[in-house]
Design a protein around this nucleic acid. Structure first.
Lengths: 213, 213
DNA sequence: CCCGGCATCATCCGTTCGGCTATCGCGGGG
DNA sequence: CCCCGCGATAGCCGAACGGATGATGCCGGG
């Protein structure tokens, strides 16, 4: 490690103080990694990033109330000289990954990864590389060449409402379409998920992490 | 702090290495707290507790695959000279708290608590006190004077079949009862879970971990 | 340029749900 | 001893659902 190397500046975004403090202690055990700020929500994240100009932001996807990690990622990436964003979260949903990467995240790691992988991930992201946890990558790959047809965006949306227990008529109102359209989407969903009822669809969708519980 | 005081011995149980390492760094910043072991699942927890005989175990409720934190708590509490168990987790569901406390946990804190509260919690639990995060306490109190939605064994059974997408007639056949009975159980389930459809019931049941996803 | 997937909408029809009300036997706690 | 919760049962009825079938417009790849 070159002594003239300034090291990487990090900002932590997580709504749990315990996790933040823990992460800070962890990464600061590495000589080349420095935590220059923390935030517990989107607003604080923007503020601290504007002031500290970090190289990499470690972002939890689930920020409790307010804007989620994906939205916050997009927010930070739209700043001038935006930092790289490395998602560090617990649950994996296909749509979570997609939206996070679409929002401009450079990587996606899980909290059940060993610290080593985290350190390597941070450095890789700082270099401009993209890093994905193997579980995450596997999930994406499985989707690509799986015999199971992928659900459309609209269908996933319907599934979300379905899990909220809404009737077809309600969904139609929410989505500003007719009830016939909703039933049509549902029929497709049933076929793709190989189920034959709303309840079965919800269970399978959660099980396959198409929607979160 | 008395120099002859040996300090409190802790074991961390969490399936996320990042969180474990973070927690370790955090609590070891306190002179009187020592982490003597870590575990990522129930089996490892039992093993390390048997060997290290800690005063307090910090337990995550969501241990990924295998036995959950509540089951692990019960396991540890049934050992000879059991350690105190302090639940340290993210989400709060009524049933989570109940089962954890029933399993013999001495406290229930949330990961969004400030580190200070955590340190105080650990010391209090070690002294034999019971500690509850204020959010948790509020939730429990609310439960006491509101009709508690404790589902019957039969009702949980119905929920399982419901998540498989079975029709009432099918469930009736499986359970060797009439369809009327099934509908009766469903009506009770809807009331207790505060939903009004099968799909909503499935989602809420999975969310509250009444049935597995 | 045509085909296919997607989203949209429509109608028909038989089945299923879910709410309502009511009954019955059983067991436990006041 | 009586009441209550639980499981089981029944019938009624309007609303919701799910399948089948077909049609339109749009867009993108071959």
């Amino acid at each position: 490690m070159d002594a003239t190397e300034p090291g990487l500046c990090l900002v932590l975004v997580d709504d749990h103080p315990v996790v933040r403090a823990g992460l800070r202690a962890l990464v600061e055990s590495q000589a080349d990694l420095d935590v220059v700020g923390e935030a517990r929500d989107a607003a604080a994240a923007e503020d601290v990033v504007r002031r500290t100009r970090p190289d990499v932001v470690l972002m939890d996807l689930n920020l409790g109330a307010g804007p989620g990690g994906a939205a916050t990622t997009a927010l930070l990436r739209n700043l001038p000289q935006p930092p790289r964003v490395l998602i560090l979260t617990t649950y994996v949903t296909e749509t979570d990954i997609r939206t996070a990467l679409d929002a401009g995240a450079s990587g996606y790691l899980l909290k059940d990864a060993p610290p080593d992988e985290l350190f390597r991930g941070i450095r890789a992201v700082a270099r401009g590389e993209t890093v994905l946890a193997s579980d995450v990558a596997a999930l994406l790959v499985r989707r690509v060449n799986s015999p199971e047809p992928a659900l459309t965006e609209r269908e996933v949306q319907i599934l979300g409402l379905l899990a909220d227990g809404l009737a077809n008529k309600e969904m139609a109102r929410r989505l500003l379409v007719s009830e016939a359209t909703v039933k049509s989407h549902l029929a497709h969903i049933y076929t793709k998920l190989a189920v034959e009822s709303r309840a079965g669809a919800v269970a399978k969708a959660i099980e396959q992490r198409i929607i979160r519980a």
